[in-house]
């Protein structure tokens, strides 16, 4: 398989103007928007998580204080971690569907796949046609 892979790649590298795509406004917008979500998102979740870990290490009495009967501050904060994963996960999913995926499709709209596994080919058409790739369930 490795052999096919090398041929395939060399072949594709000939056909696709990677640098051109990278310099296109659509791709730049995609990267900018993705970074605008992922970088703050990552900083936020790592900060909130590590803050929790630091409190566990250095503020054990505080973490053991009661919020309500047997429910402690530590457990309440632990539950916020679950909530954070849920919210950020769903937020990322919807952002990807509504913003990132359409931009990515626009960025590579000049190339469509022949569907025979030979990789993308430059479209003959004017480029105004919307891409026909269906994101999921391509089977």
């Amino acid at each position: 398989m490795a052999q096919d892979g090398v041929d395939d790649r060399a072949d594709r590298a000939e056909r696709v103007d990677w640098e051109g795509i990278e310099a296109s406004p659509e791709f730049k917008e995609l990267v900018r928007k993705k970074r605008g979500f992922i970088i703050p998102g990552t900083v936020f979740f790592l900060t909130w998580y590590m803050l929790f870990i630091f409190l566990c290490a250095f503020a054990q009495d505080f973490m053991g204080e009661r919020v309500y009967e047997g429910l402690t501050v530590g457990y309440t904060l632990a539950l916020t971690q679950f909530l954070m994963v849920l919210v950020l996960g769903l937020l990322y999913l919807s952002r990807s569907k509504n913003v990132f995926d359409p931009l990515a499709e626009k960025a590579i709209a000049d190339y469509s796949d022949a569907g025979d596994g030979s990789g993308p080919r430059r479209r003959q058409a004017t480029g105004a046609v919307a891409p026909t790739t269906t994101p999921e369930g391509a089977r």
């Binding site: 990677w18 995609l30 590579i108 796949d113």
Partner: peptide, 18 residues
């Protein structure tokens, strides 16, 4: 050149394994 390809491919899926 290969970074351009990897970068565009990883962000857009163009040329990804089918």
């Amino acid at each position: 050149r290969e970074f351009h390809e990897l970068y565009v491919r990883s962000e857009t899926g163009l040329g990804a394994e089918k």
